[in-house]
Each structure stands twice: as structure tokens, then as C-alpha cells.
Nucleic acid binder design. Structure first.
Length: 588
RNA sequence: GCGUUUGUAGCUCAGUGGAUAGAGCGUCUGCCUCCGGAGCAGAAGGUCGCAAGUUCGAUCCUUGCCAAGCGCACCA
């Protein structure tokens, strides 16, 4: 059990004589100390409790302390300041907890007490288009969320809701039938499909008959025209091959790939059902969901203030031409996921600009299926900006393609590897550059608070120093090299229970035991940068240990203990990085 | 205009209803007879956008203002 939990239950037991009914439970939690000089954990509950009971905080703290038995885990707790209770973990407890962790495949991380089922919706590229920088955050953050939830013991369905339907297909089909360049399609399918779309799109702007033709092809496709369906299938398959190549490079996979087309048959009936239920009605020829007039207009996603008046801001679910919209598809998708998987929570990893859309979809869903208890979470993230603080573009002003971005990351990583490790053979250097490049891209993204926009910087991403993927991979490689060097020199590298003597050993040991807390904190509100912060801290704690505590030259007993710390550090780094989707290297 | 996100060190960013607000980069100073210096240690650098309020305590919560990004029905 984690130190926090042990201390927490001890405090709760000591509080049994107090009337805590007027105190918010979260203020009675044992928390990590705000400053190492106060120890490892602190309990601040005496202050709110004193307030509720109209007593002095230090008196409360004293009485709690009298009833508190934490002698197994903590040195004698101290009352400090206005009534804080400070705990310092006993070295003996740290040693036994570390011994337990190192003998455990899960490194001492407990599984969730109540495993739940999650559906995580992320990545969602569009067919017939190259994946670009706009897909990278969703893909990386989503994949990390899936891994972390699974590691906690939850059941997760990852679902790639690809954009494989819609009016754009009319234009592609028109182009496909009249302008298809077979040779180019074979060489660069995505490029050719994109070219066809852009070509017809341009012609349509000048010539309305081209627009009409595209609409006709869209209608035929939707009506089940065999020729158009065959083209559509081919476009989709070729696109999926591209997605799969990129996902392989990123080491991302999905349990399901149910695109928009999958839900298409359900849409007309869904709209009719919402109309019949009185949730949607006609407006200017379209069908839309309006406010139900419940609650504060400010919190109502179907109202907007115009010229000082609250006016309707409905969610459209059917256009005046009869076609469905993405709110419609999202509602059908919700229905399908609930009926198929009965999840406790559905997580949408999309950019922050869609927040308004999801507010409407979630609100409409609650009115449609009021009995459903599923939690709906929009994990929103900011935009990736260029050095000029505007959304990242190529020098020519186009979107940055994901393939090009990963290629460049790899090339730049290769230059670094060649510079720092000129002795490596070509194959090893390439392999290291591949891992370092992808890791740098992932880490730069994950280490940022997802809510904020961030400025994309190659220099920062592949920085040789500081908080970057390179630093972490280097730390891991250094741990591994201790074992490798030991074997080369014929040193006994067997491990034994860790003993903590030097300050650097104690700090490293404490840091290793915080992995569980980092995981929990990271999944709360899906702020994954909490986990990157932890990994960075752990790498730093190891670096200090590496400097202060020689391993291979230490006496047998000390060496076995320090090797145990090295082993646990390596495995914890590896596991934490893997949760983030980053693979380690034994040598770099 | 309304909604929403953001505003913290020179730059890029973390962070929390609690005690002295942190890191990286940059600047300055140290550390290689020692397991990987792609490292470590230290210094300098802050009215936490502004102002009220709630609170024993606010950078964090509330409200107002200022500034920026984003969104605002027949694209997704």
C-alpha cells in the first residue's frame, strides 16, 4: 500500500472521535509535503476542523497526534506552523517498500480497486488526405491515456473515428472518374487523391456545373451506387494503409476503427426519433436541437447572447438538403458505443476548438437518454504553433504532414547521434535515431499541459540537455551501462534488498515509490504532463545517485543494494516511459 | 457582443486553498586520477495581468476590468 494511503487511514482512525461532518473531506487528506524541509507528507486538516469545531488548530493537531499510530511508517510526526502535521517516512519502511516494488512485476503499483470500462476516441484522421500536424496531439495523448488506464487495470476500447464519409467524396469521385492518374495513384495514393479533390474543388469554384456533378455523385454514393461505392472503398483502403504506416511508426494501435460511414445508416432514423421525442424541430428548412429552457442561460449550450438578448443557438442535426451533420453522427456513435460496450466513461481526445460542439452533443444526449449514467469527457488540447505564434505551417504555408515531421525528427536525431556517438555502426545509429526522433516528438507534446497552445521547436525538442526525451533516454542508458560494464569486468552484479544510507539513495528511493501517485494524479483530469514531470524527476534523482554513489566499486553488500536501486530505477523509467508511448534504448 | 481557453523569472513553460511559488533554456561560477560530461552542483533573475471579494490563510475559488488565442447553425 502506498505511503499516502497508509498515513491517510491512520489519520482517519485517529479522527474517529471528532465530528467531521461539517468539514469537506478533501481538506482532511494527507498530501505530499509542500516543501522537503517539512518532511514527506503533511496533514493540514487541523485547520478546517478547528474552524468547524470552534477550537484552536494546534489543540486539534495535538489531540489527533495523541491518537495517531504511524510508528511503522513514519518518524514521530511534528506539529508545525498554525497546526500542520508533518510526516517523515522511516528509512526502514522505505527499504521494505522498495524491496516489495522490485520483486513485483507492477513495480508496486496497485490495480484500480474498482476497474471500469472506458471507450477512448482519438486520432480520427480523414481519408484521402495526408495525416498532418493537427492529428499528432490527439494521437499521442489518446494512446497514452489508453496505456495508462490499462496499466491501472481498467478495460479500454480504443476507437478511431475516422472521417470516411461526407460531401468531399462527391468531388473525389468526379475527379476519380475523369482525371485519375493511375501511375501517380500507385506511386503516391494519398497525393493523387488529394490532387483530385483539390482539382475538382477549384473547378467547382469557377463552374457551378462541377459542383452539381459532385453533389450528384455524393447522392449516388449515399444511395448505394455500386460504381461509386467501389471507388469509395478503394479510397478508404488506400487511406487506411497510410494511417497504418504512421501508426506503426508511432507504435499506436486501435481496437476498433469505426468511421463515420459506419453510422450513416442510423442517421435518418435518429433524426426522426429526436423529432418524435420533441427534442428537435424544423428551423429554416433544417432540423435542430433547441434549448429546453432549463437552467441558467449562461450554462445552456443551446443559447447565445446577441445584442443583450439570449437567443437560440441550436445544434443542427439535419441540413435543409436532408444530409446529416457531425452532431448527428456523434449522437449515433454515442448510442452505438453504449449499446455495444456499456462503458463507464467515454473519452474524446480532440482539439479545444470543438469544446462548444461537444457541450451541445453531450447535453442533447442527456436529454435523449436521461437514464444513462456514462461519464462523457472531452479531453481538449491546444494548437501547435510555429515560432511566429500562429498555427504551425510549412515554409510555403501548407499544412505540415506527419510523415514529413517524423522524417525530420529522425534526421535531426541522427545528426545528434552521429555527433555524440561517432563509434556506432550505421545500423545502430539509424535505430537509435528512429527511437530518439519519435520519442522527442511525443515527449515534447506530452510534457506540455494539454490545455495550452504550444510552440513547436526542433531545437528544444531534441535539446541535448534539459527536460527532453533525450535526457530521459540517456538516464536509462546510463543505468543499463552499469550492469553491462559490471559484466564486462567480471563484477558480481546480482541484486539484493536495497538499503538506504546516502542522502542520494534515500531521495532516489522516495522518488521510486512515488510512481503510483504520479500515475493516479496524471489520470485525474487526464493531465499527462504530471507523468512526464515524474519521469524527469526520477531521472534527476538517479543522476544525483549516479554521481554520489559508486556502484561497481562498492563492497559486495553495498553493491547488491545499489544494484537493486539501479534495477528498480531502470524498470520504473522504462514502464513510465512506455505508458507515454516512449521506448527505451540500452545504448545510445 | 456572448461563450471559452490563456496571462507566473529575459525566453519557453510547470504548479498548489496552506508554511520560503518551481523547472528548462539563456547568463554567471564551480565539478572529469571516478560505473556514459547527452551529466552534476551553485548564483542571479518574480507586484504569479490589474482590482475588489470569500477565507484563519488566495498565485489557486468568486466577481469585475485589461490583454491575447479560439468558437459562434446547414464543414468536421
Amino acid at each position: 500500500m502506498s505511503a499516502q494511503k497508509i498515513l491517510q487511514s491512520a489519520v482517519e482512525a485517529a479522527l474517529s472521535d471528532f465530528d467531521v461532518s461539517n468539514v469537506a473531506p478533501e481538506t482532511l487528506q494527507v498530501v505530499a509535503a509542500s516543501n522537503p524541509q517539512f518532511g514527506d507528507y503533511q496533514w493540514n486538516g487541523a485547520l478546517p476542523l478547528a474552524k468547524a469545531l470552534k477550537q484552536k488548530p494546534r489543540d486539534i493537531a495535538t489531540r489527533v497526534l495523541e491518537r495517531l499510530d504511524v510508528s511503522a511508517i513514519s518518524e514521530s510526526p511534528e506539529i508545525a506552523g498554525p497546526g500542520f502535521l508533518n510526516f517523515r517516512l522511516k528509512t526502514s519502511w522505505l527499504e521494505s517498500a522498495l524491496d516489495h516494488a522490485r520483486l513485483d512485476d507492477r513495480l508496486g503499483v496497485e490495480k484500480a480497486e474498482h476497474p471500469e470500462r472506458f471507450v477512448v476516441d482519438f486520432s480520427s484522421p480523414n481519408v484521402a488526405k495526408p495525416m498532418h500536424v493537427g492529428h499528432i496531439r490527439s494521437t499521442i495523448i489518446g494512446a497514452a491515456i489508453v496505456r495508462m488506464l490499462r496499466f491501472q487495470g481498467h478495460e479500454v476500447v480504443s476507437d478511431n473515428h475516422i472521417g470516411d464519409w461526407g460531401t468531399a467524396f462527391g468531388k473525389i469521385i468526379v475527379g476519380w472518374k475523369s482525371e485519375l492518374d493511375e501511375a501517380n495513384l500507385a506511386a503516391d495514393p494519398i497525393g493523387e487523391m488529394e490532387r483530385l479533390y483539390q482539382l475538382i474543388n477549384e473547378r467547382g469554384k469557377a463552374d457551378s456545373s462541377v459542383e452539381d456533378a459532385a453533389r450528384l455523385e455524393t447522392a449516388k454514393l449515399q444511395a448505394g451506387d455500386e460504381e461509386n461505392l467501389a471507388i469509395w472503398r478503394q479510397v478508404r483502403d488506400l487511406s487506411q494503409q497510410q494511417f497504418d504506416q504512421i501508426y506503426a511508426r508511432l507504435d499506436v494501435s486501435f481496437d476498433e476503427t469505426l468511421g463515420e460511414s459506419f453510422y450513416n445508416p442510423r442517421l435518418p432514423g435518429l433524426v426522426d426519433e429526436l423529432i418524435e421525442r420533441g427534442l428537435a424541430r424544423e428551423s429554416d428548412g433544417a432540423i435542430a436541437v433547441f434549448s429546453d429552457g432549463q437552467g441558467d442561460p449562461k450554462d445552456d449550450p443551446f443559447l447565445i447572447s446577441r445584442d443583450g438578448e439570449w437567443t437560440d443557438f441550436p445544434a443542427l442535426i439535419r441540413k435543409s438538403d436532408g444530409a446529416a451533420l457531425y452532431a448527428t453522427t456523434d449522437l449515433a456513435t454515442l448510442e452505438h458505443r453504449i449499446q455495444t460496450w456499456h462503458p463507464d466513461e467515454i473519452v474524446y481526445v480532440t482539439d479545444a476548438r470543438q469544446a462548444g460542439h461537444f457541450r451541445q452533443v453531450f447535453a442533447a444526449f442527456r436529454r435523449w437518454m436521461p437514464e444513462e449514467k456514462v461519464r462523457l469527457s472531452h479531453v481538449a488540447f491546444g494548437t501547435i504553433l510555429g515560432e511566429d505564434k500562429t498555427p504551425l505551417k510549412t515554409r510555403e504555408g501548407g499544412t505540415v504532414k506527419l510523415v514529413a515531421l517524423l522524417d525530420e525528427a529522425q534526421e535531426r536525431a541522427l545528426a545528434v547521434v552521429r555527433e555524440k556517438s561517432p563509434d556506432l555502426n550505421e545500423e545502430a545509429a539509424q535505430n537509435i535515431a528512429r527511437v530518439v526522433g519519435v520519442s522527442a516528438v511525443k515527449y515534447a507534446d506530452l510534457s506540455q499541459n494539454r490545455a495550452s497552445d504550444y510552440v513547436f521547436s526542433w531545437d528544444k525538442m531534441l535539446a541535448l540537455s534539459g527536460n527532453s526525451a533525450v535526457y530521459l533516454l540517456y538516464a536509462f542508458a546510463r543505468v543499463q551501462s552499469i550492469f553491462r560494464r559490471g559484466r564486462e569486468r567480471g563484477v558480481d552484479v546480482s541484486v539484493d534488498a536495497p538499503r538506504l544510507v546516502e542522502p542520494a539513495e534515500i531521495e532516489l528511493g522516495k522518488c521510486l515509490l512515488r510512481f503510483n501517485e504520479a500515475l493516479t494524479a496524471s489520470l485525474r483530469d487526464y493531465r499527462l504532463n504530471t507523468m512526464t514531470d515524474y519521469v524527469y524527476e526520477l531521472a534527476g534523482a538517479f543522476s544525483a545517485f549516479f554521481r554520489d554513489c559508486p556502484v561497481l566499486t562498492a563492497p559486495d553488500e553495498v553493491r547488491a543494494s545499489r544494484l537493486a536501486l539501479c534495477d528498480l530505477t531502470a524498470r520504473t523509467l522504462q514502464q513510465a516511459l512506455l505508458l507515454l508511448g516512449i521506448h527505451t534504448l540500452d545504448q545510445m
